[in-house]
Write a protein that binds this DNA or RNA. Structure first.
Length: 842
RNA sequence: GCGGGCGUGGCGGAAUUGGUAGACGCGCUGGUUUUAGGUACCAGUAUCUUACGAUGUGGGGGUUCGAGUCCCUUCGCCCGCACCA
């Protein structure tokens, strides 16, 4: 490549690395906590180090990168860090399958992925990089966990796990397939273990009300969190049983109490246990409930099953008898572990009643439904009470209030607020996680490890030859003296859920002192995160847990803000077609690289035979519809890949990867290079239309980037590029070219640096300022208006902006096309929208 | 099952939020340049129709002078459901 200006082709293979080194040398992406500039903290959800960067990561980090680079151009001090969510099951699986140590495997993966990220040219402050498996990081996390314990936010209780009776180990939900252990194939059981919990429910109200502050979060995410927290107002009341016992139930629909036809309790409810003590049938049924998955989705899609205990509950108002069932769809963890079954107005109860022949009574009817209209499914909608004695004719809300008042009056129940949100179980019976910093002493009980003993490091010499937790099997690691009495004691061998690691990493990025988790003052300078970007799959758990930790830290006086992420953006997935065909009776998938793609056909390169083109779906290894970022960067350069990630699809939607698409992006990289080469320093003269277009584009691209509407910004840059290419040399054209260069620089930073230096500009474009907008050039003086007849377009006219209504109307009626359409009909009404349209109604 | 979302040309999408549907890109068609391929450049490209024009934003219905946008209903796909991260 020649050094003399733009006559040579842009060579990303050489330019990319050169500019990446230049940025490193200039240290231009290191965040200065002492800067006086306005600050911007741009954060993408940090990756799990699986081994290779996925194209979805590239999309996520490209979006954050454009925003970070843009903010820097707008004069902000930008914090844009990167690290590794490095604990978790895949490392243990690799240890079992390949005999490698989880730590070594994870470190290798991090090294590979970091090199991949570097090749994409992200403006990251690598000085702040850490992995959650660094003892320094998880040691500080252990300190925070002890702080939370001291603040009363940590406790232990019995809780169910998936137990594989053959491997004698606890299984994650994803390791349970059709109710069987993924390795052993054994029928999975539910087993109770004493486990650690965080009291997220203490913050239920705060987490719910705090959503109102989060104006820059997607409405859908706030709504999902609101529903997850699930605040409900209802009636908690007792059914007396015919044998003298009582069952306490909770209902959010106490208004439907006259429609109750049974009472159901969870399998591990005391009543159920009592019945089972004298009944082998009941025991068998409870055992049946214990088999199978623990997930909510499984429980709710499973067939509704019940066991009639023979007990009768007395209806608190009518005094009638209701049968008492043990039911597989009632959860001990939620409410009181018992429900009143109202089949007419709850779908689960409806299915249950239909199965067991229980009465189904309508007690709510909408305005055009009769009180005795038969029911074919549960009706949860609003309406008026029927078949309900003194509640008849009342609205649902009135009836709720009346029945609660009556229950409280007659002393058989009371109004209650119940939350769907449950406390967060953080115990994991696994090795590759943060050791829970507690010690079990026979005389002192459970005591926190002294802070000066932190970090409690994971032992390196562990054995993954047999299933189960290596920490439990380790010969010496758990042996420790009790910090209180000095006697022999044992360490806790459970580790923390990896969601705890990602619940405060954004604080550690902002401030990383050696002696404490973070420095409050420094954290206060950077937080909250201005823009957080990640996948929609984290809409509830990760984001709720991070909000909870932040509020817990505030509660403990360690920080003074409650919400970590001021703005949230959830990006879509990268998708691709699949290629497959039946071979020997089973579907065999091929990677895009193995395929020669024609217009509507695809053939396998090795044998020339056709394969089926499948749907465009999320990239996954099993379907082989993946593309490797390294390969495409080597082929097209980082800038073309970055541009592709930003083009076309709105960032919140899925982005279908295509070869043709990336080739188009690559062509545009070279097209821009040629345009920059046409900058003519000697040119002078006006081009008002182009100048207007330039400034309109600068304003629009800025607002598009701020709204993360990168696809729109890209479209506008295409338009301005096209306009500049067609224009004759002039000062305005030079301005257009220079503006395109500056605006494209956050998206295609390598090309931009190369052109910037060729144009003789000083310094790095990464440190240049965003172009100024001349407000006077933003407004056009002419507008094109639509002329409609009966709402259909008949003609368009170009008129002066701000033309009075009557003149618009006159021009519209004078139009030949309009007259032809009117065909002499009487004009009854004319609607005129200034600068927009005229609609003639006949 | 429950909660949340999405649906516009051959494809990705745009539409100042109720006011000209299809900007921009990909692909495709024709042409020019090139020894050729690629590159680059020019023109065209929702559907039906010779034209006038008609139809058209998953399907059906409604509100309105006017609906991709609002309401009802229905279908399809995607995300989450607490031990995947």
């Amino acid at each position: 490549m020649s050094d003399s200006g733009f006559d040579a082709r842009f060579e990303p293979g050489q330019a990319d690395e050169r500019w990446q080194l230049a940025w490193d040398e200039a240290r231009c992406f290191e965040a200065d906590s002492d800067s006086e500039k306005p600050k911007s903290y741009v954060l993408e959800m940090f990756p799990y180090p699986s081994g290779r960067i996925h194209i979805g990561h590239v999309r996520n980090y490209t979006m954050g990168d454009v925003l970070a680079r843009y903010k820097k151009m707008r004069g902000h001090e930008v914090l844009h860090p990167m690290g590794w969510d490095a604990f978790g099951m895949p490392a243990e699986n690799a240890a079992m399958e390949k005999g490698v140590h989880p730590g070594g495997w994870t470190r290798d993966n991090i090294a590979n992925m970091k090199a991949q990220l570097k090749r994409i040219g992200f403006a990251l402050d690598w000085n702040r990089e850490f992995a959650t498996c660094d003892p320094e990081y998880y040691g500080h996390e252990q300190a925070l966990f002890i702080d939370m314990f001291n603040a009363g936010l940590v406790y232990r209780k019995e809780s169910e796990v998936n137990w594989d009776p053959v491997d004698n180990t606890v299984l994650a939900n994803e390791q349970v397939i059709d109710g069987k252990g993924w390795r052993s194939g054994a029928e999975v059981e539910k087993r109770k273990l004493n486990q650690w919990f965080l009291k997220i429910t203490d913050f239920a109200d705060e987490l719910l009300n705090g959503l109102d502050e989060l104006k820059n979060w997607p409405d859908k995410v706030r709504l999902m969190q609101e529903n997850w927290i699930g605040k409900s107002q209802g009636l908690q009341f007792k059914f007396a049983l015919d044998d003298g016992q009582e069952i306490e139930v909770y209902s959010t629909r106490p208004d439907t109490i006259f429609g109750a036809s049974f009472v159901a309790v969870a399998a591990d409810h005391p009543i159920a246990q009592g019945v089972a003590a004298n009944s082998t049938d009941a025991q068998a049924f409870i055992e049946k409930c214990k088999a199978g998955g623990t997930t909510a989705a499984e429980l709710e899609t499973a067939e509704k099953l019940g066991f009639d205990t023979g007990l009768k509950a007395v209806h608190p108002i009518t005094g009638g008898d209701l049968p008492v069932y043990i039911a597989n769809f009632v959860l001990m963890d939620y409410g009181t572990g018992a429900v009143m079954g109202v089949p007419g107005h709850d779908q689960r109860d409806f299915e249950f009643s239909a199965k067991y022949g229980l009465p189904i009574l309508r007690v709510v009817a909408d305005s055009d439904t009769a009180a005795d209209a038969p029911m074919t499914e549960a009706e949860a909608g609003d309406g008026v009470l029927v078949n309900s004695a003194f509640l008849n004719g009342k609205s649902v809300d009135e009836a709720k209030a009346l029945i609660i008042a009556r229950a409280e009056d007659e002393n058989w129940g009371e109004g209650q607020t119940v939350w769907r949100l449950r406390d967060w179980g953080v115990s994991r019976q696994r090795y590759w996680g943060t050791p829970i910093p507690f010690i079990h002493c026979q005389s002192c009980g459970v005591v926190p490890a002294p802070k000066d003993s932190l970090p409690i490091k994971l032992p390196e010499d562990v054995d993954f030859g047999t299933p189960g937790n290596p920490l439990l099997r380790h010969p010496t690691w758990k042996n420790v003296d009790c910090p209180q009495c000095g006697g022999a004691a044992e360490r806790e061998t459970d580790t923390l859920d990896t969601f705890t690691n990602s619940s405060w990493y954004f604080l550690r990025f902002a401030s990383q002192p050696a002696d404490k988790p973070f420095d409050a003052e420094e954290v206060a300078k950077w937080l909250p995160v201005e823009q957080y970007i990640g996948g929609i799959e984290h809409a509830i758990l990760h984001l709720l847990y991070a909000r909870f930790w932040t509020r817990a830290l505030k509660h403990m006086g360690q920080i003074d803000f409650g919400e970590p992420f001021a703005s949230l953006f959830t990006q879509g997935m990268v998708t691709h077609e699949t290629y497959s065909r039946l071979e020997d009776g089973r579907e065999v998938y091929y990677t895009p690289g193995e395929i020669e793609r024609g217009g509507e056909t695809a053939v396998l390169k090795t044998d020339g035979n056709p394969v089926d083109i499948g749907r465009v779906i999320k990239m996954s290894k099993s379907k082989k519809n993946v593309v490797d970022p390294d390969t495409i960067i080597a082929t097209y350069g980082a800038d073309a890949v970055r541009w592709f990630m930003l083009s076309d699809s709105p960032p919140e939607r899925d982005l279908p990867w295509s070869e043709a698409g990336i080739e188009g992006c690559s062509r545009f990289v070279h097209r821009l290079w040629r345009l920059f080469g046409q900058y003519d320093a000697g040119a002078s003269g006006e081009d008002k239309a182009l100048a207007r277009k330039t400034h309109q584009t600068i304003a629009a691209v800025a607002s598009d980037i701020e709204a993360l509407s990168f696809n729109k910004a890209v479209a506008r840059l295409y338009e301005l590029t096209g306009a500049a290419e067609k224009a004759a040399p002039s000062a305005a054209r030079n301005e257009a070219i220079r503006s395109v260069l500056l605006m494209a620089s956050p998206m295609m930073p390598h090309l931009a640096e190369e052109a910037w230096s060729k144009l003789g500009e000083s310094g790095l474009i990464a440190e240049a300022a965003w172009p100024d907008v001349d407000e006077a050039l933003l407004v056009d003086d002419e507008v094109t208006i639509a002329i409609q007849h009966k709402g259909k377009l008949r003609d368009t006219l170009t008129v002066a902006k701000g033309l009075p209504k009557d003149e618009m109307e006159a021009l519209a009626l004078a139009s030949e096309k309009v007259q032809r359409s009117l065909d002499g009909a009487e004009v009854r009404k004319v609607i005129v929208v200034p600068d927009r349209l005229v609609n003639i109604v006949t």
